[in-house]
Simulated scan of single mutants.
Amino acid sequence: MLPVVQVFRRDAPGEWWPEGADVFQLLWCPNTHWDPPSPQADGSPVVEIRWRQAATLPPEPSQPPPPVRHEDDDYGFTPRPCLLAPVALTDFPYPRELPPSLQDEVHQLVKETGSDDEGGDIITRVAGSKFGGWPTWHLTEPCTMLCRECGAVMELLFTVASDATTGITVGRWGDLRVFSCPADIQHGYEFDVH
């Protein structure tokens, strides 16, 4: 498992933090797994989420082991060391998920901002690694993830996005998304690559 991202609560406050945790860590096996255990996504790394307390972290991070297999530079899951700058943003659901009365207004705003290039827009699909917000649906129609424990509609917890600035590549330049149950974070996660 390689460390991909570590976020402190002070840098990304929100309702997604479990009680007593102030550090979020996402690790993954950097190899593509075509038949991973559930709830992992086919054709993706196997992901592990850790919620920790900053006081229990070692003073110096340990050096992760090199991956067993290296993917091509433009395809794969080997992160490069970098720092992320937290920025508070608001994004909105995919327009078809909005009430009909708002859909026209959002489409007009997208048109006015000139952000509808190549089928994407920066208003309803804020790119980048992020806590919360709304998942992008640039490859498929929107779908609902259901909690395997209680059947609740899961919410986007975290996105690891391909990004030239950070050097992170997710598969074929996509996003790895982590969904969690709003009823109880202990119900586990659903992962997908989009």
Results as ranks from 00 to 15, higher is better:
G76F: 08
R96K: 06
A85H: 07
F92C: 04
Q108W: 13
P142R: 13
T140P: 12
T78G: 12
L89W: 01
E97H: 06
D104H: 05
V126P: 01
E149R: 14
L102V: 03
V87T: 12
E105M: 00
V110G: 00
V68G: 15
L98Q: 08
D74M: 08
A88N: 00
F92H: 12
T113I: 09
G151S: 07
S115D: 07
E71F: 08
G120V: 05
L89G: 03
T136G: 03
R80T: 11
G133E: 00
H138G: 08
L83T: 05
T78K: 12
L146T: 12
K130Q: 11
P79D: 07
A85P: 04
H70R: 15
P93N: 04
R125C: 10
W137F: 04
T78I: 14
T90C: 02
Y75E: 09
R69Q: 12
P86K: 11
Y75V: 00
Q103C: 03
D116V: 09
E112P: 00
D116R: 09
P93V: 01
P81C: 03
P64N: 00
P65K: 01
P79R: 06
R96Y: 09
L102G: 04
G132M: 04
E118V: 10
G132Y: 04
R125P: 07
V68H: 11
E141R: 09
P93S: 05
L84D: 01
V68R: 13
T124Q: 00
P64S: 02
G120W: 14
K111N: 13
D116E: 01
Q108V: 15
G119L: 15
A88V: 02
P66T: 07
D72E: 15
G76P: 09
G151T: 07
E97I: 03
D116H: 14
W137Q: 05
T78S: 07
P86L: 09
R80Y: 10
R96Q: 02
G120F: 14
P81V: 02
